[in-house]
Each structure stands twice: as C-alpha cells, then as structure tokens.
C-alpha cells in the first residue's frame, strides 16, 4: 500500500510539472503572439491542458479528492474551448482583423451571407 502511494505521488508530481510547463508556454504565447486570435488560441489550448494536468496531479497526490477533481477537469475541458470560441467569434464580428493576410476566410463569407439574409427578411 505504501509503495503504491509513493508511486502515485511521483506520477502526480510529474503531472504537475508538465502542467506548469504548459501553463508557462501559454503565458509566453499570450505575450509573444501577434494578434488576438493567435493569442486566444495559445492561451486556451495551453492553459486548458496545463490546468487539467495540474489538477490531475493534485488528484494523484491526494486520492481522496480524485473524483471531485476529475469532475473539475471535465468542466474545464468543456467550458474553456467553448468560451474561447465565443470570444473569438464575437471579436471577429466586432471587426477585429487578423494580423496577417489571409487567403481563406470561410467565416467572413458566412457572416456576410447571414447579414444579407437578415436584412432581406427585415425589408419584406
């Protein structure tokens, strides 16, 4: 029993280390990336994985909390991408342009189409 606890402890510490590295990379990405969308992506992806990993590590260190922490992990995995998606979409609609020239912009076309449809409906 003792040995299992010891092994779990080291695995948990490794998870916490990996998670903190990812969190650091996410912060670095927010600092270094050129525009809002890249920053959002860096922040979300890295911090989701980092936070999940840190929480899982804590759960392995304290097996008594593991179930609660797994629920928290599920919520982070669920809510974090969703909120960043909403943020990115709202900022695109608000007219924030991406930094670099882009050749493919499906969403911009879709927005224009939607707007035209609504205007047409309004006129009739």
């Amino acid at each position: 029993m003792e040995i299992i606890h010891e092994i779990l402890k080291y695995i948990g510490l490794a998870f916490i280390l990996i998670g903190s590295i990812f969190l650091f990379l996410g912060a670095l990405g927010i600092y270094r990336m050129p525009d809002l969308y890249n920053r959002l992506q860096a922040g979300t992806k890295a911090s989701t994985l980092g936070a999940m990993s840190v929480i899982l590590g804590v759960g392995l260190l304290q097996p008594f909390w593991l179930i609660k922490l797994i629920i928290i992990i599920i919520f982070i995995g669920f809510a974090n991408p969703l909120s960043s998606h909403a943020l990115a979409r709202a900022s695109y609609r608000a007219g924030i342009k991406p930094c670099c020239e882009k050749e493919i912009d499906f969403y911009g076309k879709a927005v224009e189409k939607q707007l035209k449809k609504i205007k047409k409906n309004y006129k009739t």
């Binding site: 969703l82 909403a86 609609r93 608000a94 707007l115 609504i118 205007k119 309004y122």
Partner: peptide, 14 residues
C-alpha cells in the same frame, strides 16, 4: 441594430 454585426444570433456551439 440589424446592420450591426454583433446582433447576429450566437453560434449553435455556444
């Protein structure tokens, strides 16, 4: 309101 881009409905994901 309608001419404003923010007034579109939010995405199905959200």
């Amino acid at each position: 309101h309608i001419s404003h881009r923010l007034n579109l409905p939010s995405s199905s994901l959200v």
